[in-house]
Amino acid sequence: MARAADDIERAHLRDPSDRSFTIHRYGAPEHLRGLLRRFWIPVWDVPAPEQSVQKVLQYPVCLLITTPAYSRFGGPTRGLSRTVLEGGSWGFGAMFTPAAGSLLLGRPVSTITDQSIELDEVFPGLTVKLRELMAADPDDIGAHAEGRTLVQERLEPLLPLDEESLLINDLTEAAETDLSITSVVELCRRFDLNERSLQRLCNRRLGLTPLWLIRRRRLHEAADRLRESSGSLADVAAVLGYADQAHFSRDFKTATGMTPGEFARMNAAAD
């Protein structure tokens, strides 16, 4: 599999001028795409005493991340995720699908929302193997491939996916990508579910609410449009369905810690 480009995806509120790290990204093999979205392997070198603070509006999924300092299986983060990079180091990460979380945990994802547990509670023995692979050269593509294989082998026994797992993947994809879905009622109608059933399903399988899915998609879309300088702030607010620019600005700053104007200027400065 070819090495992926170090692009800036919509969830990562990265300062484009920050050159202190590289992220290697790899997609999932075809047969595991119902369980695995992608791998990401950051390698950083931040001169002391500086810090590089990474801010992410995460997706509605569980994550795996191993570094020399810690190794975790994380639940979905409802707010803004912050990671501080210092010195020189690396991480090996995997992003699972909405369906995978409860299958891997053996319990509702709501039990680890906004939390993480030790990776070896979910994947026994994986931490030491990943660290051994990555220690010599964290940029080594061969080590990345071997690490991906270790994770992928642990997912094979979960196939084939049951009907509920297929449903939660489809439902989440619709909420994340279909701009015409602007309310929980519309999401219920699309998948022929009553609101109570939808709430229970999302709580169990995602650890989140249906409304959170729609709001997070809107913030991701806002970040995309602001990076592209696509229209005025008032135009962006209108396209995203806000009643006015002030409401949009409040929501964006509450979620990201930056006003829409500050985020747009940060990205424009790097062009």
Rank of each mutant, 00 (worst) to 15 (best):
45 D>F: 00
64 L>M: 06
42 P>I: 02
79 G>D: 10
77 T>D: 04
65 I>A: 13
91 G>Y: 01
58 Q>T: 15
96 F>D: 02
30 E>H: 14
95 M>T: 15
52 S>W: 00
101 G>Q: 03
32 L>V: 11
70 Y>W: 14
78 R>W: 01
52 S>V: 07
55 K>N: 12
43 V>K: 02
97 T>Q: 09
61 V>I: 15
79 G>M: 05
85 L>S: 11
49 P>K: 07
83 T>E: 14
65 I>R: 08
70 Y>R: 14
63 L>A: 10
57 L>N: 08
97 T>V: 08
68 P>G: 13
99 A>P: 09
105 L>M: 14
102 S>I: 00
102 S>R: 13
49 P>L: 03
91 G>H: 02
45 D>M: 00
60 P>Q: 09
50 E>P: 07
40 W>N: 09
77 T>K: 10
74 G>P: 06
83 T>Q: 15
82 R>P: 02
62 C>F: 03
92 F>D: 13
44 W>D: 04
49 P>G: 13
102 S>E: 05
86 E>N: 14
77 T>P: 01
38 R>L: 04
44 W>M: 06
102 S>Q: 11
62 C>P: 06
67 T>C: 05
30 E>Y: 00
51 Q>C: 13
41 I>Q: 08
40 W>H: 14
87 G>Y: 06
73 F>W: 07
38 R>Y: 06
59 Y>R: 15
69 A>T: 13
45 D>S: 15
74 G>L: 09
89 S>N: 13
34 G>F: 00
38 R>G: 09
82 R>C: 08
55 K>Q: 14
65 I>G: 09
37 R>Q: 08
33 R>G: 01
99 A>L: 01
38 R>P: 02
93 G>T: 14
62 C>L: 05
82 R>S: 11
60 P>S: 11
37 R>A: 14
93 G>S: 14
35 L>A: 09
35 L>K: 09
101 G>V: 02
97 T>G: 05
68 P>F: 02
32 L>A: 04
50 E>I: 00
104 L>E: 04
63 L>Y: 08
32 L>N: 04
71 S>E: 02
42 P>E: 05
103 L>M: 09
80 L>M: 12
66 T>G: 10
44 W>S: 12
85 L>T: 09
34 G>Y: 01
52 S>C: 13
91 G>M: 06
34 G>S: 09
32 L>C: 06
104 L>T: 03
93 G>K: 10
86 E>P: 00
78 R>M: 03
97 T>E: 08
